[in-house]
Computed example of a mutant assay.
Amino acid sequence: MNIVKTIALGSAGLLMAGCVSGFEGGPRDDKTVDAGFRGNKDLSQLQAGIWVDPTGCDHWIIDDGIEGYLSARLDPEGKPVCSGVAPPNTAIGPFKGADDVSDPL
């Protein structure tokens, strides 16, 4: 029974280790840097696509295979953009190709 408890305790410790944000000033403290498969890149260097939500409004989307980013597409007044560029629940553009520098649409 002690071996089961030891394995369970060790597993719990390993799981909790993933919750640590790293040492101060470390690479995980900078939330503007992507830590996905394609290396550490500033988010401004990644290409976004557009996901159209069920109501027909647009959202910027980036997916690098490990983590994804999504934000509402807003006009200069802060209102949602509902362009009709694609049917609802559809994603378009090179949002999965973080190394792709082509036009997103």
Rank of each mutant, 00 (worst) to 15 (best):
residue 6 T to G: 07
residue 6 T to N: 12
residue 7 I to V: 15
residue 8 A to F: 09
residue 8 A to G: 09
residue 8 A to S: 12
residue 9 L to R: 03
residue 10 G to P: 00
residue 10 G to C: 11
residue 10 G to L: 10
residue 11 S to F: 13
residue 11 S to V: 13
residue 11 S to L: 14
residue 12 A to P: 08
residue 12 A to G: 10
residue 13 G to V: 11
residue 13 G to N: 06
residue 14 L to R: 00
residue 15 L to R: 01
residue 15 L to T: 05
residue 18 G to V: 00
residue 18 G to Q: 04
residue 20 V to K: 00
residue 20 V to S: 10
residue 22 G to E: 04
residue 22 G to Q: 05
residue 22 G to I: 09
residue 22 G to C: 08
residue 25 G to H: 06
residue 26 G to E: 06
residue 26 G to L: 04
residue 28 R to A: 09
residue 29 D to S: 15
residue 29 D to K: 09
residue 29 D to G: 14
residue 30 D to E: 14
residue 30 D to W: 03
residue 30 D to I: 05
residue 31 K to S: 08
residue 31 K to Y: 07
residue 32 T to D: 15
residue 35 A to K: 13
residue 37 F to C: 11
residue 38 R to T: 09
residue 39 G to H: 03
residue 40 N to F: 07
residue 41 K to D: 03
residue 43 L to Y: 13
residue 43 L to E: 12
residue 43 L to A: 07
residue 44 S to C: 10
residue 45 Q to L: 12
residue 46 L to Y: 03
residue 49 G to F: 02
residue 49 G to Q: 04
residue 50 I to C: 05
residue 52 V to A: 06
residue 52 V to D: 11
residue 52 V to H: 02
residue 52 V to S: 05
residue 53 D to W: 01
residue 53 D to H: 02
residue 54 P to S: 12
residue 58 D to H: 07
residue 59 H to P: 05
residue 59 H to V: 00
residue 60 W to T: 03
residue 60 W to M: 02
residue 60 W to I: 01
residue 60 W to Y: 14
residue 61 I to K: 11
residue 62 I to H: 00
residue 62 I to G: 01
residue 62 I to T: 02
residue 62 I to A: 01
residue 64 D to N: 15
residue 64 D to Y: 00
residue 66 I to G: 12
residue 67 E to A: 14
residue 68 G to W: 06
residue 68 G to F: 10
residue 70 L to S: 13
residue 70 L to D: 14
residue 71 S to N: 13
residue 71 S to T: 15
residue 72 A to R: 13
residue 73 R to I: 00
residue 74 L to W: 08
residue 74 L to G: 03
residue 75 D to G: 10
residue 75 D to L: 10
residue 75 D to Y: 12
residue 76 P to T: 13
residue 76 P to W: 01
residue 77 E to S: 15
residue 78 G to A: 04
residue 79 K to F: 13
residue 79 K to W: 02
residue 80 P to L: 01
residue 80 P to S: 01
residue 81 V to E: 08
residue 81 V to D: 10
residue 83 S to H: 11
residue 84 G to N: 11
residue 84 G to A: 10
residue 86 A to T: 06
residue 87 P to S: 13
residue 88 P to V: 00
residue 88 P to D: 03
residue 90 T to A: 06
residue 92 I to T: 14
residue 92 I to R: 02
residue 94 P to K: 08
residue 94 P to G: 09
residue 95 F to A: 05
residue 96 K to E: 13
